[in-house]
Write a protein that binds this DNA or RNA. Sequence first.
DNA 1: CGTCCAATTGACTGCGTTCAAGAGCCGTGG
DNA 2: CCACGGCTCTTGAACGCAGTCAATTGGACG
Lengths: 263, 263
Amino acid sequence: MTSENPAPNRRRSPIEPVSIERHHCTPAEQVRILAATPFFRTVSPDHMLRLASTFRQADYFAGASIQRSGEPAARLSIVAAGMVKLVRHTASGQDVLLDIIGSGDFFGSLADLGDLTYQEDATAHTDCCILYTTAEEFRQVLRTYPEVTIATLDLVAARLRTAQQVIEHISAHPVDQRVAATLLHFARRIGRNVDETILIDMPLSRQDLADMTGAQVETVSRVMSEFRRAGIIESGRRWTAIRDVKALENIAGHLPLTTRAVT
Amino acid sequence: MTSENPAPNRRRSPIEPVSIERHHCTPAEQVRILAATPFFRTVSPDHMLRLASTFRQADYFAGASIQRSGEPAARLSIVAAGMVKLVRHTASGQDVLLDIIGSGDFFGSLADLGDLTYQEDATAHTDCCILYTTAEEFRQVLRTYPEVTIATLDLVAARLRTAQQVIEHISAHPVDQRVAATLLHFARRIGRNVDETILIDMPLSRQDLADMTGAQVETVSRVMSEFRRAGIIESGRRWTAIRDVKALENIAGHLPLTTRAVT
DNA sequence: CGTCCAATTGACTGCGTTCAAGAGCCGTGG
DNA sequence: CCACGGCTCTTGAACGCAGTCAATTGGACG
């Protein structure tokens, strides 16, 4: 049987042509993307033009390194397209995956004086397009546009709250609950309703889930198999689908890792 | 034997008269304390006077509840004197202690729109004095004084970095390393050099350490006994002393939980 | 068709939790 | 001043969740 003729019991991958990520943005697109970002929603279009000119662009193929921990924290980066992994490598060799972020999200330095070096690696999780400015230039933007500073504060505060939620989960909940919460986290951010299920259309390996939940690959695999056997989820190479959100929420303890539904 | 005549083998508690925390601040002290806070360092004295008038004061005895998670996030609070515990109670009954903060630190709501209810309990860890303003008033302050917004952003960004460090530790390091890192965390914040040791002059129960490291009381007790037997630490009812910082740093993996030396 | 890597599953180990009992320390009240 | 009660802390012993090691499967791609 070919891929045109799916197996009877298992529906075929719901992401049709493996949508190719945009790999480069025109200047007009840059402005549009930046303006839509939580940072700059309040900025008027003409100011936005000048402001966007302080940003440069860089494209990366999946797997490429964007920034490395320990390097001087020189840039503030915003994801224009694609997804970026934020990873801390520990001395013991275990990786800690802080988050996988998408279009409109930021990473890098906010130019806090104490923030002299990057604390984590940023890697292109898919092919992606990054808009970046220097820490100093962004600092200048903050001084010029106070409403941007407030927006930035809200973004960082939201991320702090998420981080504290993660601390709670890793401190006090068993692995299956943490995996469930992580799946709901992505469902809320990028989930789309498809065929009575919530489709998470992104690569999310067992290793990724393990690094996000502070667990081992094998453990996550067992948990995911359990979920699959219970009819709660379904997953393929580049996607995961939640068939029974209620069940997942029950397992996660009614406490999803992120509240915001939109990015 | 009286407390004037210490036991031969064990030096007596190094905190002399169990210093009584100030329990109420005069208006002048309020202004001085607020002005010394990272929020308002850049504000000129005359502006500071007006600004301080938006704050009210409340005093709490040790153990008293200051805010409860789930309540509407109406206040931004700053610790004027004493120490405050920030705790999340989990459904399973286990507590997660996010931090114990002191003079100049803040907690509560930054008036982020999404931050509608408190995410954690705040409890008076010692007798303490809290200066608070409403979330709305503080929002107005941010709009009026952009440099305060930038300072706030830096504070929240620093706290985010600390939280991510905690995530790394709890995800990837065994309990003894986490306890060591937590002791160093407090040593850097409030440690004083006394008799070749670093004295952490605050109540810090095994339960507190357990809740901060995501471990159980018994496990922390074993680890601390191990440290004591190795001559690394010494501890009493209201204090902990580090005799061998290098050893602790080695155990923690040269990665203390906080970098800043001053509050 | 063969190679490579992710995922799965099983068996065993061990760190940390859980359960339980005892020791130390302190405030209180007789 | 000492005895009592309640608390935290400590230590021991057994259990269990998750980690580790190892072998196999399965899917993607050249």
